[in-house]
Design a protein around this nucleic acid. Structure first.
Lengths: 389, 389
DNA sequence: ACGATTTTGTAAAGATCAAAGCGTATTGCG
DNA sequence: CGCAATACGCTTTGATCTTTACAAAATCGT
């Protein structure tokens, strides 16, 4: 919706405003003619024309000279947002793997590099792998760190305003790591560190299971449960970055929930503890009684925490994601049944469509949002990588 | 901060934008000179001058001719927001009483009318009292219904988007009442119906215990517990209006919490059930062992629900309000202790400073917000009461 | 008491920007 | 090949804000 400046607006500012609205109209649509932009923005054709030319000279847009024309009349020049003006990075610093994505300003993924890392790796080793992955990702796309406009890193555990994970993190020795500071030494652009569940929620809203919703509770189902909250279309961190950490409440037996799967009777000794859950899901799918019971107990405990979130926020959609979302076919129906029993107003319950890459994808999206915020608040002059404040 | 129009902006719109910024600058400050406004908005003095004169002719502002001057130089004309251009109403349709407040656009309360009503009164009777209170309030201020720009009514229970309380309400027969429709027959301005806890939260942020916070959990402590959530400075209703209804979760023994007070041993038979809680608080304050135990059990159960809200949202402040907030001295410290035990990051815990009138005050504030939204999105032409869409 | 100083009010000039109108270029169709 | 339709580019016009300048009103200093 349209908003207003708390401060007065003069003519140059007006032009900047209109330039921004043209940029928006360009970005959300395929290459457009001046008349299309004119209709879309409400501005007159001559105005759009001169602004568009200005955007081209500034490097924000490119022109496509008319080729084969399909319509009648003189073929129109088409303007196109220059997505390659800048690039953003999102990286998932996970327990078992590190995955980096590099995309242009349209969000088209240009490069993706993944490398596994030992769960018990020390911080220094993990950071070294992270650096290698980022180097490979940036270099592989033929870019340099100066071309990157924003970097977001996803970590496990509550992230405070300073980018620290002081409260809790399953990564050994990670509490004292200043990840933002480390990345700041390698990139001069804004750096964001954020919780993995929250970023996965963002990804599901971006191009996942909840693109239509503004109020979303994302459940990360895995060996550790977590949650990410999107309220009124915006990712909510809470005052101290600890929003969604309902698992800390003992009355909600959320921490115990995965243990039902891990300790399920009948799991062969040949199966490692990490793979036990997958084995149980498979067995349940094939009718194993003990496995079905374990899954049901898991869902029952999961549902209590989910219900607490749902009752607090009354969301439109609950998305079940994380490692266990591959077995969503076994989880969703009992989860719905339990929520129906526990909640006042029943939300939709959907399975994640993004799988395990959702965290890195959400990090990418947060980087894009960061660029957007800078762009649309600071105004556009010439496209250069923003520097940290 | 600043903004951006998704649509293009032309010159007339520019002047409207600047007019609005002048209105804002006028409203948040005492009567101002042109130079003050110029500095505040960044506009030039002549521009402010012509805009201010336009606002006066349109009825949005009044001029104060210079009287005794304190500073050197020629005394300046002062402009003032005409708060009397319109009025808003907030009314609390409570179980035991109905309280209506009428204020001008600055939020100055002009009239307040209260009338008690039997808890078991049928809907028709309650609506009749409501009408009488509203008539007395509007007439007592020397206004007519056409002068009212927005009306907000507070009710108990979850309110859906249509203004119905279908899920739950303690008022007998109230589920089938169309309160918005009823009020719509008496006022032509926008009508809002909202949950009482949510409105009380709004009031505490407006002029209560949490004016400095943007992330607030408001606990309504009384014979029925409730909650209102303010996230990022905005009152959150949830997708279906049922946000904050954590009491519905059985694992959170919130519904039982007040019963510890009501069923406390030692309460004389002469004390009515409604007054039992007050008696217990008094006894506890004087050292009665049984009473102290009851209060502690009450707080312990209250804290579980509060912890669920706090862990979900990670707010800056928890405000304890409602009928029991008069005994906040007994509640706050044990509540803090319990929350410390249950939560990850400890929020501030404060007592309500508004008491029982907070609900009506919050309704008034929501009416003011409604007017603001219309004003700053639809633009200002001449000050007239907005009509329902 | 009178002039200097400071601040306000107002008017005119200059600059910027978008809208409206009109002529021209290019293509498709008959 | 000519006509119609569409798009492009230019000019004029109108609206708005800023700058500059100057007159008016009040206080301060001598």
């Amino acid at each position: 919706m349209t908003e207003l400046a708390t401060t007065g607006t003069d003519l140059p500012r007006l032009r900047e405003l209109n330039s921004l609205s043209i940029v928006r109209a360009l970005r959300d649509h395929p290459p457009s003619t001046v008349t299309e932009l004119s209709q879309r923005t409400g501005l007159s054709r001559p105005a759009v024309d001169v602004i568009a030319q200005g955007l081209v000279t500034d490097g924000w847009a490119t022109v496509l000279e008319p080729g084969a024309s399909s319509a009648v009349g003189r073929p129109a020049r088409r303007y196109q947002f220059r997505a390659g003006a800048g690039y953003v990075v999102g990286v998932d610093v996970g327990v078992h793997k590190i995955l980096a994505l590099l995309a242009d300003l349209d969000g088209n993924i240009v490069q993706s590099v993944r490398q596994s890392v030992a769960a018990e790796a020390a911080p220094a080793e993990r950071l070294a792998v992270l650096d290698a992955v980022l180097d490979a990702c940036v270099a592989g796309a033929g870019k340099s760190p100066g071309d990157i406009w924003a970097v977001t890193a996803a970590v496990t555990g509550a992230v405070d305003a300073a980018g620290r994970t002081s409260f809790f993190t399953p990564l050994p020795g990670w509490k004292s790591v200043d990840l933002a500071g480390h990345l700041g030494g390698r990139f001069s652009c804004p750096i964001v560190v954020e919780n993995d569940c929250k970023l996965a929620a963002l990804a599901e809203r971006w191009k996942g299971a909840a693109t239509d919703a503004d109020d979303i509770v994302y459940l990360l189902g895995g060996m550790r449960n977590g949650a990410g909250l999107i309220i009124d279309g915006v990712l909510r961190r809470g005052f101290g970055g600890a929003a969604g950490e309902i698992g800390a409440l003992k009355h909600v037996r959320w921490l115990n929930a995965p243990s039902h799967l891990q300790n399920c009777p009948g799991v062969p000794d040949t199966v490692s503890p990490d793979d036990a859950a997958a084995w149980v899901f498979n067995a349940a799918r094939q009718g194993d009684k003990a496995a079905r019971g374990a899954v049901n107990r898991y869902v029952k405990d999961l549902a209590v925490g989910a219900a607490a979130l749902v009752l607090t926020l009354d969301p439109q959609v609950v998305v079940f994601g994380g490692g266990f979302s591959r077995s969503a076919d076994l989880v969703l129906d009992p989860l719905r049944h339990e929520l129906q029993r526990l909640c006042l107003r029943m939300p939709e319950v959907r399975a994640s469509t993004l799988g395990a890459d959702s965290v890195a994808l959400g990090a990418l999206k947060l980087s894009l949002n960061e660029v957007d915020t800078r762009l649309f608040s600071a105004g556009l002059s010439a496209p250069v990588a923003p520097r940290r404040h």
